[in-house]
């Protein structure tokens, strides 16, 4: 059986550095924390190099290590924000419903089709900005669930919350993200007619 190609560690940074960086940056949205995680990943890889079975590609192996580092990072942040005062960005209660729970200010029509939308880099810039505007707890839960695609049991362990708690957090995150996108992108694109 042919073994997958293995690069010399001195070539790792040039070969995999940017890829690992983009992967982590999308999830952390913090350049210096991301650079640190990439470095930690390479160092951990260097240490465990001999036990690397070579059954997966080197990229898959490195991403596997990076994923653990990212989970650790979120775990640390979850401990930090569980201070009594919480995150100052924690949103106030939603004001879009009246006392009977009916929309008082319903969602506007977004129009267009996703295929066209997803080709617009500017849309994703706004998407990322909206995500960064959420409190850490909401942003990290959303990132783990929708970008990383983790299952809820796993996320509960990382963020140290119950499942019911996580549903509330994700509901909040989606609602706030939706509202932010509406304000920052869709209502504006309706104005400029595109």
């Amino acid at each position: 059986m042919e073994k997958p190609e293995r690069a010399d560690p001195s070539d790792w940074v040039d070969r995999y550095g940017d890829y690992l960086f983009r992967y982590a940056m999308l999830r952390l949205r913090d350049r210096s924390a991301t650079e640190d995680l990439v470095q930690e990943t390479f160092l951990a890889a260097l240490e465990s190099r001999r036990s690397f079975s070579g059954e997966s590609s080197e990229t898959t192996w490195l991403i596997g290590i990076l994923k653990h580092k990212i989970a650790d990072h979120f775990r640390r942040q979850a401990r930090e924000v569980s201070l009594p005062d919480g995150d100052p960005r924690d949103p106030p209660e939603d004001d879009r419903f009246d006392a009977t729970g009916r929309w008082s200010n319903g969602p506007t029509e977004w129009g267009g089709n996703p295929a066209d939308l997803f080709r617009r880099k500017e849309f994703f810039d706004q998407f990322t900005k909206c995500l960064s505007g959420l409190s850490r707890k909401h942003a990290n839960a959303f990132t783990l669930r929708e970008i990383e695609g983790a299952d809820t049991g796993e996320i509960c362990k990382i963020l140290n919350v119950t499942e019911t708690n996580l549903w509330v957090i994700l509901h909040r995150a989606r609602m706030l993200l939706r509202r932010c996108l509406e304000t920052r992108w869709f209502d504006k694109s309706a104005e400029r007619g595109s």
Binding site: L26, P114, F118, F124, F127, F142, I147, G149, L181
Partner: peptide
């Protein structure tokens, strides 16, 4: 659903 699709697309 669109928001979920956008997140997956980004990934």
């Amino acid at each position: 659903n669109l928001i979920r699709g956008a997140a997956r697309h980004l990934a």
